[in-house]
Computed example of a mutant assay.
Amino acid sequence: MTKTLFRIRNGVLARVAVVAAGLLLSASALAAAGGDLQQAGTDLSDRGSLQRGARLYMNYCAGCHSLEHLRYSRLATDLGLTEEQVMENLNFTGAAFGDHIINAMPQDAAADWFGKAPPDLSLISRVRGTDWLYTYLKSFYLDDSAALGWNNKLYPNVSMPNVLWSLQGLQHAEYGAPDATTGERPVVGLTVAQPGSMEPAAFDQAVRDITAFLEYAGEPVALKREGIGVWVILFLAVFTFLAWLLNKEYWRDVK
């Protein structure tokens, strides 16, 4: 018995150690990727935010990135849009209403232009998380040494330009002291040197809307699941009360 408990205890401790190591590695990776993440503050119940995010995504992101697991028709239903609104304002590839959202960029050409074909973003929010996406979209800065002239504080050496620069403005990096080993100067902050068409608060909201839309695209059923969840809880509460009354009535005459 003692040996069995000892094995179980060791097994639990081993699992705890693995989890702790994973957390430490995650924290180290986050620090290496550019520091703390900003809170996205997305709200999937805010349909207006999702609609604005869809518009911004289609205008600034869909030229390179597909959402191959989402259909235009599903998008219309979930976001409360008509077929006419979707086809006129969100569909720029000539796809049918029932088609998946695929960009028109040739994959081979994209690989030549950017070094690799831009990835599909259907599941990016589930892989990276909404806070990561929100921070990433706000962390671009001008870098003359980069191939495309842009770099990213959160994701250094990214092979993607800042597609939102006209809204955000042009950011410059603030560098810290050189690393004693590599001699490289880490990016410690970002400053908007040339304002864009949006005020900072408005741009933050725009990025939040895009992030919310990508969160929705990663799991469209979440909109209905959360709505149904309230009714399920109410049903279980009523059912539990009725079961308690039935149990009380059944045992009332039993001595």
Rank of each mutant, 00 (worst) to 15 (best):
M1S: 15
T4S: 11
L5M: 11
F6I: 12
I8N: 04
R9P: 01
N10F: 03
N10P: 00
G11N: 12
G11P: 01
V12N: 03
L13P: 02
A14K: 06
A14M: 13
V18W: 04
A21N: 06
G22M: 09
L24K: 04
L24T: 13
L25Y: 04
S28D: 11
A29V: 14
G34C: 08
G34E: 10
L37K: 03
L37H: 01
Q39W: 05
L44C: 02
R47G: 08
R47N: 05
Q51N: 07
R52D: 14
L56K: 00
M58V: 13
C61S: 05
A62G: 09
A62N: 09
G63N: 04
S66W: 02
L67N: 08
L67P: 05
L70C: 10
L70K: 05
Y72E: 09
S73T: 08
L75N: 08
L75E: 08
E88V: 15
N89S: 14
L90A: 06
L90V: 13
N91F: 09
F97S: 10
D99K: 09
H100Y: 12
H100C: 05
H100G: 15
I101Y: 04
I102K: 13
Q107W: 00
A110E: 13
D112I: 10
D112P: 00
F114M: 09
G115A: 03
P119A: 12
P119I: 06
D120H: 04
L123R: 11
V127W: 07
R128V: 01
L137R: 07
K138P: 00
S139A: 12
D143K: 03
D143C: 04
D144Q: 10
G149C: 03
W150Y: 11
N152Q: 05
L154M: 12
W165Q: 11
W165P: 00
G169F: 01
A173T: 04
Y175N: 04
G176H: 04
G176A: 05
A177T: 12
A177D: 14
D179A: 10
D179E: 10
A180L: 10
T181W: 02
T182S: 11
G183C: 04
R185C: 07
G189P: 00
V192I: 15
V192K: 01
Q194G: 03
G196S: 08
S197P: 01
A202E: 11
A206W: 05
T211E: 02
L214W: 03
Y216S: 02
Y216K: 03
P220K: 01
A222H: 07
K224S: 11
E226G: 05
G229T: 06
V230W: 08
V232G: 12
L234C: 09
L234R: 13
L236S: 14
F239E: 13
F239I: 08
L242M: 09
W244F: 14
W244L: 15
L245Q: 15
L246I: 15
L246V: 14
N247L: 13
N247F: 13
Y250M: 14
R252W: 08
R252I: 08
D253F: 13
